[in-house]
Design a protein around this nucleic acid. Structure first.
Length: 641
RNA sequence: GGCGACGUAGCUCAGUUGGUCAGAGCAUGCGGCUCAUAUCCGCAGAGUCCGGGGUUCAAAUCCCUGCGUCGCUACCA
């Protein structure tokens, strides 16, 4: 009998920054799903990798004084090195700079080009050669490039476009006909609502005069492909499209794990690309939410970008994986704080499971140093009264049901309900009392046997989330761990697999408690995961900025704008018109008379059709912008040092 | 401004298709046990399920509206 197949992927991560918590979560989730499916008898394949082309990479490489290839090698290495640390069991790590991948991208492009869904279209635009980019007319200042002060040239640029609109109705039908195509439900709704608007064709190329770090179009050597075909095709190139064994076996079973920010490319562009290329559509998309850190979205400027390497170093891999799976409702956003991870580790792992493991094995070791005697089955008359079997069975069922739906929080919760039940069971049966009464020797053994059996079930179920701990527990329980902790789901349940006549070692501590919580809090504040500041600049850099005092003379709303105000500012020597995005915090009437600090030598810009000759300084606090002024009234136009 | 969410006990949040849905964990208080990593077990708190309106025999759960928070985006020089 052949085993059913299951293919899981993570997105290929863009190598413009080192891995953070979000990357770790997606990858761990996919890993947990993979390990679960393996338990459930599936033949799995698990793919992750890095996305390495594009303009941003070229720029980043220039900054680092190295070639794009050297740069992407370096960052991609960080990802490749992280996964073993997090116990990720991926079968392959794909890079979009791999020759094999590039070849498949060319094939797909050729197919779709041949079938007529890629067309060439030229358009005229205003192009500034200095900036190497097109400008909209409203972006220009007096018809000139705001950066270079030169008139942009009207040039005709042509690009390749992917005709998506004709597949729109097909996609809507496909999504509706396959309820599992996009999960959870809320994201399916979101995609369908996107699809209510007509789809525009997708620009899929860049001329080599503008971008060289990419894959050359097979049908036009002067162009490289841009983002979509380059990146998404990794999912099939990794499997050896078009005729690899892996491709045939796994492709139809694909489930992609993605974060909610990239559902559009995955939920719309990708299926349409596949359809246009005449390929099977992947099976489905599992969409998860974002991790906020300490209450706000991860961002470099807030300084809360969380490094999974640091967290793992602090708390260990398994606790980290457990926390991520237990705390986030798959699909929704969740919050990550030191306090919460410490609480989870202490209460769920150390107190509930770790302590249970310890107390059961210590008692068993003491009461039955030679192991259980095999008279226990004879006690079947009392089995119902004493058994944990039904609860264990329920835990296994609920676990399986939840894990199948990627409801990892519910899966772990089901296991922990059982753990909690075992703790209650001990309280009720009072094995320490039984141990003092020789006449109740058999009752004692039965109670302990049931508990050891219960631990065995738990040790098997936690494998997808905490593979190391699963193995450790199984070893302590005298089970075979040749398969590194993986025990087939259907073999867990026959109750009574614990061997007779073999004693147990005194157990090691599974999860040490993290003590001194107040101290922890202090440490967190004293040592943020990452410094919040931008790179250092020299005094020369700073002196280039000409800051002056100025007084707002008048202010009015910019029409059709929600937060832009048009200010007239007296700089002493001259008056300036400045457009400022402070309309959410300040009303126009409240501004005249206020003295502010102005960046006086900022290039002119045109915003919403209005000229802006400078910028007023303001402090950004969440969405609020608070103007920065001077401590006491001064003359206008004075330099700020 | 547009699009999308979210607003449930002190805190963090569960509550797919409306009728034991008023819940869990943590924190707090009291009580119990002593096998165990000072762990475990039991009990308690009375929270207008953001406000208002509507649909319904019945709504935290559906519809409308108001307020608040957040994300994306547009116009953050």
């Amino acid at each position: 009998m052949t085993r059913p197949a299951q293919f899981f992927t993570t997105p290929i991560y863009y190598v413009n920054a080192k891995p953070h918590l979000g990357h770790a979560y997606t990858t761990i989730a996919a890993d947990v799903a993979t390990r679960f499916k393996q338990m459930d008898g599936y033949d799995t394949y698990f793919l992750t990798g890095t996305d390495e082309h594009g303009d941003k990479i070229v720029q980043a490489a220039e900054k680092e004084n190295c070639s794009p290839k050297e740069y992407v090698d370096q960052i991609s290495r960080l990802f490749q090195d992280l996964w073993p640390v997090l116990n990720i069991s991926n079968n392959q790590f794909i890079r979009t700079t791999n020759p094999g991948h590039i070849k498949v991208v060319e094939q797909i492009l050729t197919r779709i080009h041949d079938s007529g869904d890629i067309y060439f279209s030229s358009y005229e635009g205003l192009y500034c050669f200095g900036c190497e980019r097109f400008y909209q007319e409203r972006e220009l200042t007096d018809g000139k490039c705001p950066d270079h002060g030169t008139a942009p040239e009207v040039i005709k640029e042509s690009n390749y476009f992917f005709r998506m609109s004709q597949y729109q109705d097909w996609l809507i039908d496909h999504i509706k006909a396959n309820p599992d195509f996009i999960r959870p439900e809320q994201y399916k709704k979101e995609i369908l609502s996107f699809l209510k608007e007509p789809l525009e064709d997708l620009c899929i190329s860049r001329p080599k005069t503008r971008l060289t770090w990419g894959i050359t179009l097979p049908f036009d050597k002067d162009y490289v492909t841009y983002v979509w075909f380059d990146a998404l095709v990794n999912y099939i190139s990794a499997l050896g499209f078009p005729d690899g064994d892996l491709f045939r076996k796994f492709w139809p079973t694909t489930r992609h794990f993605v974060a909610k920010d990239i559902i559009k490319p995955h939920g719309i562009y990708w299926p349409i690309m596949l359809k246009a290329a005449g390929l099977d559509i992947y099976n489905g998309l599992n969409v998860h939410g974002f991790w906020n850190v300490r209450g706000s979205k991860m961002s470099k400027s807030i300084g809360n970008v969380t490094d999974p390497v640091e967290v793992t170093g602090e708390y260990g891999v398994d606790p980290f994986r457990y926390f991520l799976m237990r705390e986030m409702v798959f699909g929704r956003d969740a919050n990550f704080t030191e306090d919460q991870i410490v609480t989870r580790i202490n209460s769920d792992l150390a107190n509930d499971l770790g302590n249970l493991f310890s107390r059961v094995l210590t008692m068993t070791n003491r009461s039955c140093p030679e192991g259980f005697s095999n008279q226990i089955p004879a006690l079947s008359a009392r089995e119902t009264e004493y058994s944990l079997k039904d609860s264990a069975l329920q835990a296994v069922d609920e676990f399986k049901q939840a894990m199948d739906l990627c409801e990892f929080h519910n899966g772990t919760a089901a296991v922990w309900s059982f753990v909690s039940l075992m703790n209650k069971y001990i309280d009720t049966r009072e094995p320490w009392a039984l141990a003092k009464d020789e006449t109740r020797r058999q009752d004692l053994e039965l109670v302990l046997y049931n508990l050891v059996e219960g631990l065995r079930v738990v040790a098997c179920l936690i494998y997808p989330v905490m593979p190391d701990t699963a193995k450790k527990m199984q070893a302590a329980l005298g089970l075979n761990t040749d398969n590194n902790g993986l025990v087939p789901l259907h073999t867990i349940m026959p109750w009574g697999q614990t061997a007779f006549g073999t004693g147990f070692e005194k157990p090691a501590i599974l999860f040490p408690r993290i003590e001194e919580k107040p101290k922890e809090t202090q440490q967190v504040q004293a040592k943020p995961f990452k410094p919040a500041l931008k790179d250092q600049i020299s005094i020369e850099d700073f002196s280039k900025i000409d800051l002056r005092t100025g007084t707002i003379l008048s202010a009015q709303k910019v029409e059709e704008s929600s937060k832009l105000l048009k200010l007239t500012v007296d700089l002493g020597i001259e008056k300036r018109q400045i457009i400022a995005g402070i309309g959410k915090t300040y009303s126009p009437e409240s501004l005249p008379g206020k003295q502010v600090i102005v960046v006086a030598n900022l290039k002119e810009a045109r915003i919403m059709g209005e000229v802006s000759q400078g910028m007023v300084l303001a402090v950004k606090d969440k969405k609020k912008l608070v103007l920065s002024g001077v401590e006491s009234q001064t003359a206008n136009g004075k330099p700020v040092q």
